[in-house]
Every structure is written in structure tokens, then in C-alpha cells.
Design a protein around this nucleic acid. Sequence first.
DNA 1: CTGTGGTCCTGTATGC
DNA 2: TGCATACAGGACCACA
Length: 282
Amino acid sequence: MPELPEVETVRRGLADRVVGRELGAPVVAHPRAVRRQEGGAALFSGRATGVVHSARRRGKYLWLEVGDRDDVVVAHLGMSGQFRVVDAPPDDDPHARVWWPLDDGTTVVFRDQRTFGWVLADRMAGEVPTAVAHIARDPFDPAFDREATARAIRRSTSGVKRVLLNQSVVSGIGNIYADETLWRVGTPPDRPASRLTQKDAIRLLDTATEVMDEALAAGGTSFDPLYVAVNGESGWFERRLDAYGRQDLPCRRCGTAIVREQFANRSSHRCPRCQRPPRGGG
DNA sequence: CTGTGGTCCTGTATGC
DNA sequence: TGCATACAGGACCACA
């Protein structure tokens, strides 16, 4: 699923293939893709055009700055969203939801199998678009405040995995990297976040950053960035996962079988030996 | 305000 | 073989 490293890889592809070009009026083939647009597809098509000045990201949200003022096209990939740059408008692609002609004759297509993703013509509200205002900075943001974020984590009464997934606390982390992070630090997902020391919480954030940085490096090196922009893949399959999806397989650290459990309505993978609550019940 | 659980959606995998 | 069901999950939203 697209989490921060995948979205960043897509952003780089868009920066390479779309920035500097002009977006023509988009075709909305599937209204659900613009469900967040007040005024619907007609208003979206009228506004989501212009010369693309930059491709930006916060957490899992992407946006293109277009036109002359504070106009942006925001996108969230949901679970299965992709951007592809293709030679001709899609003809027989059932998952093509929205596409724009570019002034070089190519077409940029937003594809989405499971339709949880969306695109939106929006305005900037300070550093980020209105639709992204409630999203916390991600660890790759130069202004990310690690200590303050660690304190925010510890203020929550929820389990630590749920807090890592809360995009208003720290953004960019999804189910896969949350499981990987918790495996690496040796913490059970339901450990109350409020029980973490500041040092624990900082270590958690540093580890999440490290895991995502490695994933980004894998996505960036195993594929040409151009290819990423064109085909939407980002090297997920090249990645070495230690916990996610490894149920019944031996833990790479201790050999105990990884277990899969339901946690916060999501599948959660952990090593029952390495990820135990600390002594004293913490 | 905070936390939680339901919901959206469809391709793939599994079960009978 | 064919049909039914389970499953995957990010973020929004109603509700406690």
C-alpha cells in the first residue's frame, strides 16, 4: 500500500515528468475519484488545470502547484492509487479514473483499482493545501519536531501502533511500516503510548524514519524514477519485510513464528517473543 | 476534545 | 467448475 516512501517515489516521478508542463482540462471518468470536490466533476475539471510549478508532499498526501496563484491539485492514493504518464489517453483501462492531457502530447492518468484514492482542486492555506491542514508533518519534513512529536505520542491513551497510524500525530506511516517499526524496536502494538518514556518515543520515531528511509532507498534504486512515474510501481516487492505479511514464518531475530492478529480493525504482525511488554507490565 | 469502530471499494484468494 | 465469502486497508465520520 502506498505509504510515505511510495508516495515520495510517485512525487519524484511527477516532478520529473509533469512539472513544467501544462495540464489541460481533465477528463473525469469516475465521479467517485472527485468525491471530495464541492461542485463535483464539472468544477474539478474547470479548476484542475494550468502550468505545473512543483510537485509536493506531506505524509501520504501529494499536490501539484498549478496556474498563477495558490491553486493546487491535491491527491491521495488511498490503497491502490497510481499516477502514470502515458503516450495516449486511456482507451481500455478500467481503472483510469481521471486523466489530463499535457502540452507535450502525453497524458497523465490517475488510476485506482479500489477507489479509496481521490483528487481535488484546492487552494493553499499557508504551507499546505486546505485539505492537508490537519495532517501532521512527516519525519522527512525539514521542520519536523521530533521531541514535540514524541511528547504528542506519549499524550495519547491509545496503543502505540494506533498512535503511529494517526496522521494528525505523525504522518506518512501506514500499516506495513508501523508493523516493521514495532518489530525493530521490540514493542507490542497495544502497548499504551502513555507508558513510553520520551527516550522510547524518540527511538520509535527514529526507527520509523529509518525503516521508511530504507524503503525509499530500495524504491529509488531498484527502479528508474522515470519508470516509477510511468508505471506506478515503487519497489514494494523488492523490499525486505521483517514482520508484515510474515505470519507463521520464523522471526529473523529469534526464530519464533510471527503471529498475525486483528488490531484496530487491521491485521497486525508481530513476534510474540521479541515484542513483549517490558518487565513491570509497561 | 479524544478515542473507537464502521464504512467505503474491488481484485484476489480461499472454501464448499 | 462455479459460486459465495473473506480479506486487504487509509481516512473520514458518527458516536460514546
